[in-house]
Write a protein that binds this DNA or RNA. Structure first.
Lengths: 142, 142
DNA sequence: ATTAAAAGGAGAATGATTATTTATTAATAT
DNA sequence: ATATTAATAAATAATCATTCTCCTTTTAAT
């Protein structure tokens, strides 16, 4: 996993370079996402931000996450009913979700690049993104 | 792609074996899904069924599709806002979605089984399902 | 400090999906 | 065939994640 502090700086730099403003609420969301390894939902982030800024609105979280998605500083993963977010590795990579406890893991899989290349080759599509999601039961839940 | 007629028979057999009834509306949905290669949405199926049974309700389509999912005779693919369904190959397999026209293709990719095995091995999860989705621009839209 | 633009807050609106209720319909036994 | 019952369909209400609207506050540049 990337260093949270470095990730945060990177996010801040990208924000600044695009002339987006830095507000306390926004900084709080960035910090959470940069440090997170648990792929939090909007609700998860909301709960955490509220501890520091109790008047924060859910819409603010949605808007911030959406902004970060646009500038490719966070990855949205639609596993189930609500999305989960990865601000630590904001580029496409495989995920494994435990169907029982909801835990998400990033497996280190070889051959992903080849798979993407093969998909492009056999279809003729220009591939710009992908989601490789596995569903199962984690060791603790078995 | 599988023979639509054969797929339909298979679906009918499974329904019967589980003591689910065969109604005209249900049959219509089965036929559409067995023959479809375009991965229709619930709305798509609804429009088609309505041409034969104009009073059909959206809820009926949802219920039928949901039933088919339970007995593993249709695969749900959550691409974007609304799900799309594959009744022709109702088992996990890769998909490529065109971000411009929405067309969905089934690429023939080697090494998928190994990838699943590798994910299970390195994580310790018991993997029961997966979604391998690629996003890009199809040849026609380029 | 002033000001224009951006962002936040609160809650309403949206839209896909699910649940509920009632009315039909099909399967089975009589 | 008919009655009984249980499953299914229709219509509509409810839900829930997400987005939007409107208004206020804050930011950052002058």
């Amino acid at each position: 996993m990337a260093d949270p502090q470095a990730r945060l700086e990177q996010m801040l730099a990208k924000l600044k370079s695009r002339n987006f403003r830095l507000t306390p609420q926004r900084l709080a969301v960035l910090q959470i996402l940069a440090a997170s390894t648990n792929h939090p939902s909007v609700e998860d982030i909301y709960e955490e931000v509220k501890q520091v800024f109790p008047t924060t609105s859910l819409a603010t979280i949605y808007k911030t996450v959406s902004l970060l998605k646009e500038i490719h500083e966070v990855l949205e993963i639609r596993f189930t009913d609500s999305s989960r977010f990865d601000g630590n590795k904001p580029y496409p990579h495989p995920h494994i979700l435990c169907l029982r406890c909801g835990r998400v893991l990033d497996p280190e899989l070889p051959g992903v690049d080849q798979l993407v290349a093969a998909a492009a080759a056999c279809s003729g599509y220009q591939i710009v993104d992908h989601r490789l999601n596995f569903y199962g039961i984690c060791p603790d839940c078995q």
